[in-house]
Structures are given as C-alpha cells and as structure tokens.
Design a binder for these strands. Structure first.
Length: 464
RNA sequence: UCCUCGAUAGCUCAAUGGUAGAGCACCCGGCUGUUAACCGGGUGGUUGCUGGUUCGAGUCCAGCUCGAGGAGCCA
C-alpha cells in the first residue's frame, strides 16, 4: 500500500517518491494501448499536467484498464519510476487500477479541442478541460493576490452589502430585490405597489458598487478595500460585460487622484507578477494556446510606466492623429471605444490613465477641478480589454456635492448619510473600481468574460 | 436595444437548386514505449423551428428561436 499523493506533489518533488509505491486518484484524460501494454494519463485536478500510468499484461484487468473512456474516475497504485520515453521525466508503473466512477455513453467532452461556444453549453463539465483548468486556477490565485496586495499595505477588507437601497451612481439598471408576490402585490391608496410592505420596508436592489459604503469606512480606517460580487441589469451583449461580476474597490482617505493612480498601477503590476510566479505552467499554456504574444505584452506591462494624460490632451492627440474615426472626437463628448483603443494600442502601446473628464459625462460624486469644467476622474485603458479601471477623487466639499446632486435632480434625502461623511471630519479621499474579470482576461488573454467566470450570468443566460 | 454573420452526425466542418459527406468520438480488429498514438473496418442525420417558392430545397424567400461579433452602457 503506497503513500497517497497528488499529481502536483509528484511533479513538484518527484525525487522524494522515485522507486517508491504511491497511490493516486483522479480521472482518465486519455488512454492508449498496444498489444501487450498501454498508457493511461491520469489527472487529479491538482496540477496542470497529467501523470502517465504504464500498465502491462500482468495487470489483472489490463484490457479493461487500457480501454477506459475519457473521464473515468480511477484509483491507481504502483511504483513511481523514471520514464524511458520522451515527454515525461517519470511515470507510474501501475500495479492496480481500480475504477471509482464509470463514464456513461455520450460524455460531451472529448480529447480534442472544443469551441468555447460549445463549452459554455456544458458549463458544469467544462472545468475539466485544459483551458478552464488554467483559467479558474489562475482566477483563484488572482483573487488571493488582490488580498495579499492590500493586506500587505495595511488596507482593511470591508464586506459592503450586496443588498442596497441606494442606486450608487444614479445610472445603470438594477436588479430589484423583493419578497412581494409579483402576481398580487400590496397596493397603497393611489393603487401603486406599496413597498412599505416589502421585506425591508422600501425598494431594494442588488448592489452596483460598494463605493459609497467604502467611502464611509475609509473615514474610519483610512485605507480600505472591498472585493465582492456586483450586479448590473444592463442589456449588454458584449464579450466584456456580465450581469454578475466581481469588483475590487479600494478607497483611501487623505489621498487624491495621483495616489489612486499610483495604487492602481502598483496593483496591476503586482497581480501579473504574483500569478506569473505562482502559476508558471498555466501562464505557459495561455502563451501557447490562447495568445501567442502574451508574455511580450505582460513583460511590457511590468516594465513600462503607465502613461498619464488628461482627457483634453487625449482629445487633442486623437484629433491630430489624422485617422478617420467612425465617430468624431470632440471635447465634451465621451471617448468611444475606437478612440480608447487607438490611444492605448496605437499611440502609447501600453496602459494609459486618462484623467480630468468633463463633469457632465461623469458621476455626481467626482471632485470638481478648479477649471469648473472637469472632474478629478481617471480611467485606466489597456490594450485589448479597454477600460479596466474607473476611479476618481471624491467630492469632499459639502456645498459643491449638494449643488451637483441638485443639478442632476437627485434627492439629497436619499444620500443623507453619504453627505454626513462630509460634515463629520470629512477629508479628501479617492478610490477606484477594478473589474476583476477584466483583469483576469487581461492576464490570460481570454477574449470573452463568459470564459473567465465558472458559471457566468449574462442576458438570457442563467442555466447553471 | 441597434447592426452584421451564423445554425448540417455526439464534436469540428464540407456539400452549383438534383441520391447528405469527411476527420475526430463511439463499436470491432491489428500494432515491439505511446504522447490529442497509429493502421483497417463498422454504427451514426426529421440539415434549429414554422410556413412559402419550385417537378425537386441543406441550398432560394418570410417569420421565429438560439448563438457569435461589432456598437451603446460600463467594470
């Protein structure tokens, strides 16, 4: 009876197990056989590579073992030996192959390349494929990296609410949360649905951002961050949008826009470095099969200083570029996707912070600049993915904030506690939101957000 | 939501308006260490749905459903 080991343990330290009996349990990835011997490749989910098991006629169930269909769950015992064949340094000489779980006919995954579109239709099975192994393992590490980065810098992790009564930015469709029976709702005297009778006594929604709560907490802990699920009910049908996604939102007191950009740049670089060190095999896989210039792009990112330009400069650069854009570039209008891509992919060829957008195209809480026309906002644009981060210095001056709410027709009663933060020891503060999935896409080269979320929620799609 | 493209075997794809095919998977057989093994044979189809044009529709037309890409919204 050999020691129970994982495939990862074998690959990371084969020497300690060589010429010893071990037991491995996992799933058959492929099996091939010849007349008197055969090979079974087993993976147990702990490592990217498969363990090659060699069996020959001395195995009691030889014929059965070498004919096992892909996906069969097995437990294998045998001696770990140096492999005479090319392609692997060691292999397991199988002395016992026990079948733990059989595979029914019609198993949707085969040992060949499937399209991502097809794999989305079998989301419960696709984590077993090479690409999704790599993606989801990397996603796990990236999440860990987020926490390491902030914890190392003394940021406090705040669990902001998922159910909220405030529509954070006054824009964007929300998912309503209610226990009212839609077929027979309670009604008030005017005949409208009476949300006073709803669970929370008012209308509530799934959060679109934890920012407002993070702002409250940064006035207590100085530096905080949130990292959790976020929901948008937008009818967006693109490879970059999901109805449910994760967002990272740091918020710093006694800080301005420059500090927010410094933090964002450090965070992105830390993330890339961390996962590259922790998951070299996975990164190698992405480089080989997903995006062939991935390493060049990421090396560039690690060594480049992110460009920083103002919106006004960006408009000028684009107008002088001599390119016929589908939409004209004009000061006061938001930059179109084609403009953002041109800036980051053609002009700078690296990540670019664009700051100082016109106040009319940005959210109410962003701090007004001295020119009275622009706000201390910043977007981080990266090649391939587009907008990766959006942030700003927040308006800490109460009269200006109240004026802005009034201009936008937003009731200040709805934001009473947010406004009070400015009355009780309010300080300059700044923060940003990082789309976690977009970061994972950027690091892996994956082109569709549906393929970096295990069970993605998008318009008309919540099967799994 | 708008624009464009697509839907044929379990998967990936072929098929001038004229008998629906290949590779892989699966089943059977062969094979002296294989690497998505290889070689030979076999099974497998209401061509997304509904209707129309035609002697005849996978192919042409209309509507619908689903998917993908682009745009908008954004992270």
């Amino acid at each position: 009876m050999g020691e129970k080991v994982t495939v990862k343990e074998l690959f990371r330290g084969a020497q300690t197990h060589l010429r010893k009996k071990v037991e491995v349990s996992g799933w058959v990835r492929t099996a091939r056989d010849s007349k008197a011997f055969g090979f079974i490749e087993v993976n147990d989910g702990t490592f990217f590579k498969n363990l090659q098991v060699v069996v020959d006629k001395t195995l009691p169930n030889f014929k059965e073992a070498v004919g096992l269909p892909v996906g069969t769950a097995v437990r294998v015992e045998g001696e770990l030996v140096e492999s005479p064949g090319a392609g692997q340094a060691f292999e397991l000489r199988g002395e016992k192959v026990e079948i733990v779980g059989t595979v029914a006919p019609g198993y949707p995954l085969q040992k060949k390349r499937h399209s991502f579109e097809y794999l989305r239709t079998v989301a419960h099975l696709r984590p077993r494929t090479n690409t999704f192994w790599a993606v989801f393992r990397l996603r796990s590490l990236a999440a860990q990296a987020i926490h390491s980065f902030f914890q190392e810098r003394g940021f406090i992790y705040i669990h902001t609410p998922i159910i909220t009564a405030s529509d954070c930015e006054g824009a964007g469709a929300l998912f309503q949360v209610s226990t009212i029976d839609p077929a027979d709702p309670p009604r008030n005297e005017e005949g409208e649905v009476d949300y006073d009778k709803d669970f929370f006594g008012k209308r509530t929604y799934l959060t679109v951002s934890g920012q407002l709560e993070a702002e409250a907490c940064c006035h207590a802990f100085r530096n905080v961050y949130t990292f959790g699920p976020t929901f948008r009910a937008e009818n967006s049908n693109t490879p970059r949008h999901a109805a449910e996604f994760w967002m990272v939102e740091p918020e710093m007191a006694f800080a301005g826009l420059e500090e927010a950009m410094d933090l964002a740049e450090a965070l992105i670089k830390y993330l890339v470095k961390y996962v590259w060190e922790q998951a070299p095999e996975e990164m190698e896989f992405f480089q080989r099969f997903i995006e062939k210039d991935l390493f060049i792009r990421l090396e560039n990112l690690l060594h480049a200083e992110f460009a920083r330009i103002t919106y006004t400069e960006a408009v000028k650069l684009l107008q002088e570029a001599g390119v016929a854009f589908e939409y004209p570039v004009e000061w006061g209008k938001d930059l179109q996707t084609e403009h953002e891509r041109y800036l980051t992919e053609k002009i700078f060829k690296k990540p670019v912070f664009v700051t100082g957008y016109p106040k009319d195209i940005k959210a109410f809480y962003m701090r007004l600049n001295d020119d009275n026309k622009t706000v201390a906002a910043m977007d981080l644009l990266v090649p391939g993915v587009g907008e990766l981060i959006g942030g700003s210095q927040r308006e800490e001056r109460l009269p200006l904030l109240e004026k802005r709410l009034a201009e936008l027709g937003m009731g200040k009663e709805d934001y009473w506690w947010y406004l009070e933060l400015r009355q009780y020891g309010g300080v300059p503060h700044a923060g940003f939101g990082l789309g976690f999935e977009r970061a994972v896409m950027y690091i892996t080269g994956m082109k569709n957000i549906r393929d970096v979320i295990p069970f993605p929620r998008t318009v008309r799609s919540a099967e799994f």
